[in-house]
Structure formats: C-alpha cells, structure tokens
Design a binder for these strands. Sequence first.
DNA 1: GAACATTTTTAGTCTATCCTAAAAATATAT
DNA 2: ATATATTTTTAGGATAGACTAAAAATGTTC
Lengths: 217, 217
Amino acid sequence: MTPNKENFIKAIYELGGDHSVISNKKLVKNLSISAASVTEMNARLLKENLISHVPYRGVKLTASGIRIAHQLIRKHRIWEVFLSEKLGYNWNEVHADADLLEHVSSDLLIERLNDFLDEPEFDPHGGVIPNKDGSLPETSAFPLTDVSTGRPFTIKEVDDDEEFLNYLLEKDIQLGDHYTLTDVESFDGPLTLETPEGRQILIGHKAAFKILVDYVV
Amino acid sequence: MTPNKENFIKAIYELGGDHSVISNKKLVKNLSISAASVTEMNARLLKENLISHVPYRGVKLTASGIRIAHQLIRKHRIWEVFLSEKLGYNWNEVHADADLLEHVSSDLLIERLNDFLDEPEFDPHGGVIPNKDGSLPETSAFPLTDVSTGRPFTIKEVDDDEEFLNYLLEKDIQLGDHYTLTDVESFDGPLTLETPEGRQILIGHKAAFKILVDYVV
DNA sequence: GAACATTTTTAGTCTATCCTAAAAATATAT
DNA sequence: ATATATTTTTAGGATAGACTAAAAATGTTC
Ligand SMILES: [Mn+2]
Ligand SMILES: [Mn+2]
Ligand SMILES: [Mn+2]
Ligand SMILES: [Mn+2]
C-alpha cells in the first residue's frame, strides 16, 4: 500500500464507492489527475481485489477496500482531533496536515494517540471515527435539506472542505448549535434558520446539503 | 524535496558530511541501498547544489545541504519529544515513527508542536534540537572514552540506535546520571564506572564511544 | 610495480506514478 | 437513426527511485 493508493481508495469511498459505482470522471475531478491516470490506478487496485470494475462505467470498493478506507479515515480523523484539540488548529486548518500524516501512522502511534485524546468519537467536523477493526459506529444524522419546519434540531456534522468551513465561520454556525427551520423557499431556494435567541440565518440549498443535523429529543 | 532525498541528506550529515567527505560505501551501509543507487542520488543532489562531489572519493554537504539537514533533524527530534513525553513511548521506540513523521510535517505543524511541548531543547536521547532557522545551538559534550578518572561527570547524550538503547536499558544508564570513571583497561578495553552509591558498571570501549558526557561543575 | 581486492561508475532494467494525444465506447440531441 | 458530445481506454513517454552486472578507477600487498 502506498500513499497514492490510499488516497485513491479514500476518494472512491468519499464519493459513495462503498455502495455504488463511481465514474472515472468523478475521480478525475476529486483527485485532480488525468483520466488516463484514473484508468491506470483502477487496474492496479483491481489486481489487488480492492475494487470491482465495470468497464466504461466505473468502480466500487470491495469489502477489503472498504475496510482499508475506514482504517485510513480513522487515522485521518484522530489526527484532526489532535491538531484541533492539542495544537489549537481551527477546524478549517486541520484537513491538509491530517491528509499527510494519515499515511505515515503506525498502528501503535494511532492507538497511543487515541488514548492520549481519550478515545474521541468524532472529528472536529462531527465525522464519526471508525473503529480499530475497520467497522463504523452507528450514527443518526440527515441533511439540513430534509429537516421539517418548527421542530428544533442540532448540527451534527459538516463537510470537511476549507472553503465551506470558512462560510460556516462567517455565518457563525458550529457543531452542537440548536436551530429551528422557519422557512424554505421553493425550487431549491434558501432556508431560513432561527436560533433560540431569535436571530435569523439564511442558508443556500447547496450549503444546506453539506450540513447534517438531528432533531433535539 | 522528497522523503528519499531528505533521508539521504540526513544520512550524509550523520556520517559527518557537514565537515568531511563521505564515501559511497558508508552511505550504502547506512541506507541499505545499492552502490549504484548512491551514485544516482549523488548526481541528483549535486544538480540541486546540496552536496559537493569528489569523483571516486565521496560527497560533502554544501551550506544549503547542511541547513536542510538541520531542519529535518529539528522535525525529527521534536516528534521524538512528543512521542516520548506525550504518548508514553520508551526512548528506544521513538526513532522509527519520527523517521516517517519528519517528512510530512509542515512548518506550521512543527512550530505548534514545539509550543505544545514548551520549546524543548533536547530530544529523548539528549540530541540538541536545531533552531527554526537551521542553525545549531551550542552544546558541550564529549565521548565517554575521553573522560578522566576520578572527576565526576554526567550523561548528556546517547546514540539513537534501538539496539544500543536496549543495551543502556539493561545497564540502567540514563540521561543525567552521575558517574565517576574508576578504571580503563588498556588496548581499548572496557571502562569501569561507579555511581555515587558505589555501584560498579562495566562499559565496552565501542559502547563508551556512543555515550557523550560532560563534567559536573 | 604487477597482481589482486575493493570501490565507484556506467549501462541496462524495473515499477509506480504521472502525463498527452488518439482511438473506442457510450450518451445525448435532433 | 444519425450526428455530435462526452467519457473511457489505449498507446507512447517522462521522471524518481531502485536493482544487477560489467567496466573503470583506486587501494593494497608482496
Ligand atoms: Mn479531513
Ligand atoms: Mn492523504
Ligand atoms: Mn531519532
Ligand atoms: Mn526519515
């Protein structure tokens, strides 16, 4: 396993490759490499039985491919917790360094880091940290776009994308915040959220899709 | 700069390449690569002006080569402090992980880690941590083989080699310990050290060379 | 100083990863 | 259904890094 292969598998996973076939096009865009390079990497991973391939359609992770993705994401997210909680990184700064560190982390290192951090369950963006064995803990959260008006909810997880996180910083939206949906414009228009204190926040439909929430009990 | 080049430059430095010409043979042994690969890497580093090369004699670091070596060693040693002090690694466990982490550490990461660790001066083996600008703090220490009998001294630094560190663990020799040299066998024979409590420790000449000490004032 | 030994360099390959350009397959629009 | 557009694959190259085997240079021994 090399850093390149690991990143490639992670990209497939993050595009939904654990349950559906991902096109080369999507990987080209996500990884910023040429289409030819995607075809080549597919061939390599196919030989190692980490993906299944439907010619001219795309690829899907096998069970062992998914396990490797989960283990890499575990490393990534534990590093993000460390950078955020111990080194004072903002949540929009952690990703880049974690993306490098994840590839040079021995199991020993990750488990000791995990202990040092008191076995965190979530990364700074609310992403759940996979278990050591490569399984994924159960979580319940759904996109903000699916929330019903009037029923209070809380922010559970947000997209780990630097630009988007800056947008949330501007709007002062944080994990754990409580809101109520008061209005939705039709035709995928913006959503209006209200804080318990009565402050109104306007969120575009595309942004709302990158925010996962859950109802307050 | 790639991890391979960085390791190569560090190896030259650790073999004395900051002040003398290092043969390919030594690098072959140190890095466990073929002689041909050493010749090739020399050519690459020469083109980047990081080394000077005397054909059939060996290589020596240029000023910028030395600066790069120091900056890498800074990263390496700061990571070693972290692994040792925060994650509970033993001093014979830290090297391997630090050897990987050093290559994926942004300046931001290293400076924040340095703050988090309260700006340590030395790594777990007593090696001085180079400054951020690539300069080296002054230190005074000399090999145990050069110590005079009867004058109390303290352990300042030991070789960062897993096998050797295990040997020191067995002999219960630690940084900061105080001893007096009571006897030296001729013909590079073993040295006899005595603790303040009167316990006697026998050290082979080769091992004594890997231990740096300084007199107690 | 010739003979032998050691070390370094060169020549020729290999793999991983990337690329561009062209060909083949698939999708869309009229 | 055909023409056009998009996507994927193939073909051919590049670079970093590693190797082995052979050639060239240097060192050592008698
Ligand atoms: Mn991330
Ligand atoms: Mn990564
Ligand atoms: Mn070390
Ligand atoms: Mn290293």
